[in-house]
């Protein structure tokens, strides 16, 4: 397991992170260290703060207390240039895909590397084609998002995130909006990424997938990391009543 290698610089270090929406505190002090290449599955009831935690990592949500470091770089919420640098390192995939409907699949993928990295057109084109091939959609380069199935759209979204060459991917319930028969094709892409050593932080309801792919499962409850551990132990032998109850509610 990658966590045992104790690398010099963790991919992600979160310490004492607290986040409130108004008077409602949704994250009540999160401490978490993620090693490079580690695959983390975050599970828990809705409202437990798991999506909010994920969104804090790339600054889609601001937090009030605590620190967050990506690859040794502290997240500076008020520094636009620093946030831009951070977001190039951390990709995100959303539950609702959020592809740009007015752009073709190819342009969806090429937009950000072109604007942010200022890559020349031929490099962009080559990269977009290569990534589309990797997610199995080479022939969809000129299609518009609304011509694709949900599973295909989500695979394009993965290719779009990868085009920025991130060191870490955040996956926010990426199969929850999909018809059951389309879930597999998306998870297969994510599994391949995990095998290639991508650092993954995924909020998921797919327990079988979490068990199969993740190195560590984190159970969140009421804004805290309630229990964590390797999937085989966590699922087989939950230590807390809350996790036991959560797991049995899924049966």
């Amino acid at each position: 397991m990658p966590a045992d290698l104790t690398p010099a610089v963790p991919a992600l270090t979160i310490a004492g992170l607290r986040k409130s929406f108004g008077s409602n505190e949704v994250l009540k002090g999160i401490d978490l260290t993620v090693a490079p290449g580690e695959v983390i599955a975050i599970i828990g009831k809705s409202g437990s703060g798991k999506s909010t935690l994920l969104r804090c990592v790339n600054g889609l949500e601001t937090f009030q207390h605590g620190t967050l470091e990506v690859d040794g770089q502290a997240l500076a919420q008020d520094n636009a240039a620093a946030m831009r640098a951070l977001r190039q390192r951390v990709g995100m995939i959303f539950q609702s895909f959020n592809l740009f409907p007015h752009l073709t699949v190819g342009k969806n993928i090429m937009l950000a590397p072109g604007l942010v990295r200022k890559l020349p057109a031929d490099v962009l084109l080559e990269r977009a084609r290569r990534l589309l091939e990797r997610v199995g959609l080479a022939e969809k380069f000129d299609a518009y998002p609304d011509q694709l199935s949900g599973g295909q759209q989500q695979r394009v979204a993965i290719a779009r995130a990868l085009a920025m060459e991130p060191m870490m991917l955040l996956c926010d319930e990426i199969t929850s909006a999909l018809d059951p028969e389309l879930v597999g094709e998306v998870l297969a892409v994510v599994e391949a990424l995990a095998k290639e050593g991508m650092t993954l932080l995924m909020v998921t309801h797919e327990m079988n997938f979490a068990r199969k792919v993740s190195d560590r499962v984190i159970f969140m409850h009421q804004g805290r990391v309630h229990e964590q551990g390797p999937p085989e132990r966590l699922f087989a032998d939950p230590q807390t009543a809350e996790l036991r109850q959560f797991l049995s509610s899924l049966q």
Partner: peptide, 17 residues
């Protein structure tokens, strides 16, 4: 939808972009 802004943010685009 707000998701369109967020997708842009997550891809490191600035506000004007």
């Amino acid at each position: 939808s707000r998701g369109q802004w967020e997708a842009g943010q997550a891809l490191a685009l600035g506000f004007i972009e």
